[in-house]
């Protein structure tokens, strides 16, 4: 509201260059409200760090698939003071190395340093999660807005279909879907998108019902805009916020589903491909040997991400849905 001064009057002279797009104006107001919640800002920052690590790992992979501590080609070592050169002296009895200045989080039983594998695992997890929620969002918003706007039989059918998807816990339905489609990461992606769009469709439909009776929709209808144009140009931009809030919370849920399914050894991806659930499972199998770091470190790494995402989602909900503030 930069153009409106305290008395509520418009400033007399606003140059065209200074005037910002109303949506941008809206965004900056939302952003200001969001930054008032310190915990949410922390969550947002941590999430961004995780995304940045993912992108960095795409550009400059820390783990090339073969590295163990004898042949490491990672970008982690330049960060340490003494990059290891020459052969290591590791007691031959110890298969795994405890956290060490060279290996910040220790090494796994196969003598692979955990940190670079964990970063590669993060890449797998976060890429997958973003794919699921964004595809689900795309489908869900379109279907929800169309159904909400058209109403009638279309709407009724949609609601009944989403009812069915909500009638089974999503993790269990995901197992059944990926079983039928065949075990692979892409099929799990498809299964989760099929399971996730109803959430966004429902939320979007709910808001669409209130938006569609507003004046600006009526105005565009009166001016002869087609239904498709109204839905995509006028309805959808105004019904996004609940889905965005849900999306930020779902980032945590989806990553836990992938990690969980890999943890219970569902053969979705090869155990050789780094993935956080796989790492926790590997660590769990050698736990009795006293190698506590192999299971603790990936778990904490995953937990920090899910907590951060939840903090961020809470903050977004406070901003977009004042009714639920403080919940």
């Amino acid at each position: 509201m930069a153009d409106v001064n305290v008395t509520g009057k418009m400033k007399p002279a606003v140059t065209a260059a200074k005037k910002r797009h109303p949506m941008l104006e809206d965004f900056s107001a939302t952003f200001k409200a969001f930054t008032r919640n310190k915990l949410a800002v922390v969550g947002f920052s941590i999430t961004m760090v995780y995304f940045a690590l993912t992108i960095l790992d795409y550009v400059y992979p820390a783990y090339l698939g073969v590295s163990n501590i004898d042949q490491v080609t990672s970008w982690v070592f330049p960060l340490t003071a003494n990059p290891p050169t020459g052969p290591f002296i590791i007691p031959s009895t110890a298969a795994a190395t405890a956290p060490h200045w060279w290996f910040w989080f220790g090494t796994s039983l196969s003598r692979q340093p955990i940190l670079p594998i964990m970063l590669a695992a993060l890449k797998t997890d976060i890429t997958f999660t973003l794919e699921v929620v964004l595809l689900g969002l795309l489908i869900g918003i379109t279907v929800g807005a169309v159904a909400g706007y058209l109403g009638g039989v279309v709407d009724e059918t949609l609601m009944r279909i989403t009812d069915i998807f909500f009638s089974v816990p999503s993790l269990i339905l995901a197992i059944a879907f990926v079983y039928v489609l065949g075990y692979s990461l892409n099929n799990l992606l498809a299964a989760l998108v099929i399971l996730w769009w109803p959430t966004y469709a429902r939320l979007t439909r709910g808001v669409t019902l209130t938006v569609k009776s507003m004046k600006f929709i009526e105005a565009s209808r009166a001016s002869g805009a087609s239904k498709i144009r109204i839905i995509f140009r006028h309805v959808i931009p105004n019904v996004l916020s609940p889905s965005f809030v849900q999306l930020s919370l779902d980032l945590g849920t989806v990553v836990l589903i992938l990690a969980g399914l890999r943890f219970i050894n569902l053969p979705i991806i090869s155990p050789l491909i780094p993935e956080l659930g796989t790492m926790i499972n590997d660590g769990n199998s050698v736990l009795v040997g006293g190698y506590w770091w192999a299971v603790t470190v990936p778990g904490v790494f995953l937990l920090i991400f899910t907590v951060a995402v939840n903090l961020m989602g809470d903050g977004l909900r406070d901003v977009f849905d004042p009714k639920l503030r403080g919940l």
């Binding site: 836990l256 990690a259 926790i280 736990l287 778990g299 995953l302 937990l303």
Partner: peptide, 18 residues
């Protein structure tokens, strides 16, 4: 309560086992 939402159940189970 937030950490309860975010907690990977399988990891918590392993930690409790330890």
């Amino acid at each position: 309560s937030l950490s309860g939402f975010a907690m990977p159940a399988f990891w918590l189970a392993v930690m409790l086992q330890i």
